[in-house]
Design a binder for these strands. Structure first.
Length: 423
RNA sequence: AGAGAGGUGUCCGAGUGGUUUAAGGAGCACGCUUGGAAAGCGUGUAUACGGCAACGUAUCGGGGGUUCGAAUCCCUUCCUCUCUGCCA
């Protein structure tokens, strides 16, 4: 959520930046400031009247103590009049605050200065490329054929149990998932991240704090009986650990990593890119999350990108790093780097990680603050990234490491899987 | 799931309608004292909004209500603990 004070001081800049994100109603910036002016005025007159009520009430107490009943009754009548004035003020103030909030939550985060202009994924900027695409043997297959051939994943039975997009991993396929999760978590904790295993359902307050509500309401599975949401990423529960918390400056940076299944309805993504493991409703992911000093978030973002890059290099997968353009970036992000790995058999790039700096967008929403050296309370910055999402990594490894005899494994994974080859 | 007890500041903890402007204690910070430290003494020690400021308003888990006045009474909801039940 953007801060009113910031919009007030940077009205034109905010509009310009919102345009980079293709936000349709830049004039809502003016609406916010107008509503805030109204709120201030209302509060001033409310406070003034309430102050009179409060001090008169105290006087009544003193009069009663002295036994001056008549005077007390007269004061009561006067207070009654003020309270009548208070009622409409209170209602109006509540309404203005709701209106203000409703407008404010519509704003996406403002893009960082480094964010390239552009609307579509084609306009994302390739920052760098690494690794070498393997030369596959003739007759190399896409992962959806390989997993069937070797009985690693059964989509049909998953569909029977739940529905389409809920894969059933079997045998070595299941064990490989476990190996990947273990490897990723170890890799992250070795770099200083603390491991968390969070709840996989969250309440509405948590979903709101990280920006899933109200923006992505329809993208989450909702257990209506208890009003819980199945998490679309571990970012939601783990970032919310620090909701309504005032940290010490020395607590920063906080580095967390968490494994979780992720549940996404993917409403509206028909047809394209849905084959095999490319897009599913439930998948496994290991996430990294940091809460840092605002002066440090640019630097930390680069560190996190380098960390994920190192992980991909260790898997021997060809990859590229993209800096997302304004139109392709997420709602809450100020700047995002996507990692894509090259799937040799599909001959295309698959997104496997997304690393973002949210700056104070989430922390302001969820009131995650810290007390600086001068004793001043400031909003921290939050960042997160996948390290990594499993299905597409699974797909890429299966495809890129296939041989005529079976499927090999990256060295780093062999001890985790307990064999040199997957098949 | 049922019955009961609770939820107060950084922490412990008092407080069943009116100098509570949330007692008292601990911790922490600063000062005095000291050769140095401890003890002792003094001062300070939540957040948000409004205001240049003085200050005002709100907040005793959340929401709502009664009252001139609510931490205190009522309703509702969430959470914690104890017992019972069920269960991995």
């Amino acid at each position: 959520m953007l801060q009113v004070s910031f919009l007030r001081q940077n009205r034109d800049l905010a509009k310009k930046k919102l345009a980079i994100k293709y936000f349709a109603q830049p004039d809502l910036v003016d609406t916010v400031i107008d509503l805030d002016d109204e709120r201030k005025q209302l509060q001033a007159s409310f406070d003034e009247t309430q102050a009179k009520v409060n001090s008169a009430s105290k006087e009544i107490g003193a009069m009663m103590a002295k036994g001056d009943k008549e005077k007390a009754e007269a004061t009561k009548t006067a207070v009654g009049e003020w309270k009548k004035q208070l009622e409409p003020l209170k209602e109006k103030m509540a309404q203005v605050e709701i209106d203000l909030q409703n407008v404010l939550v519509q704003f996406p985060n403002l893009p960082h200065d480094l964010v390239p202009l552009g609307k579509t994924p084609e306009e994302n900027e390739v920052v760098r490329t690494g690794g070498v695409p393997p030369k596959l043997h003739a007759g190399a297959e896409a992962h959806w054929d390989l997993i069937k051939k070797y009985n690693l994943v059964d989509f049909e039975t998953g569909a029977k149990i739940t529905g389409s997009g809920f894969p059933l991993y079997i045998g070595k396929g299941a064990k490989f998932q476990r190996a990947l999760v273990q490897y990723f978590l170890d890799f992250n904790t070795a770099a200083g991240y603390t491991e968390y295993l969070p709840p996989f359902m969250v309440n509405a307050a948590s979903a709101f704090a990280t920006g899933q509500l109200p923006d992505k309401e329809g993208q989450m599975y909702h257990a209506t009986e208890d009003d819980f949401y199945l998490i679309p990423t571990a970012e939601v529960p783990v970032t919310n650990v620090f909701r309504d918390v005032v940290l010490k400056e020395t607590d920063l940076p906080l580095q967390m990593t968490a494994y979780s299944p992720c549940f996404r309805r993917e409403a509206g993504s028909f047809g394209k890119d849905v084959r095999g493991l490319n897009r599913v409703h439930q998948f496994e992911k290991v996430e990294i999350i940091q809460i840092v000093h605002p002066d440090k978030s640019d630097e930390v973002l680069n560190e996190m990108v380098a960390h994920v890059e190192k992980l991909l290099v260790s898997l021997g997968l060809p990859y590229r790093v993209l800096r997302l353009c304004g139109g392709d970036m997420g709602f809450a992000s100020a700047i995002t780097y996507d990692f894509e790995v090259y799937s040799a058999a599909q001959e295309r790039w698959l997104e496997v990680s997304s690393v973002s700096n949210f700056q104070a967008y989430q922390t302001y929403r969820m009131k995650c603050r810290f007390k600086d050296g001068a004793g001043k309370i400031q909003f921290a910055h939050s960042l997160n990234g996948s390290s990594l999402a499993l299905p597409r990594i699974f797909a890429a490894i299966v495809e890129n490491y296939q041989t005529e005899a079976g499927i090999a494994l990256p060295k780093a994974l062999q001890s985790y899987f307990g064999a040199e080859n997957l098949i």
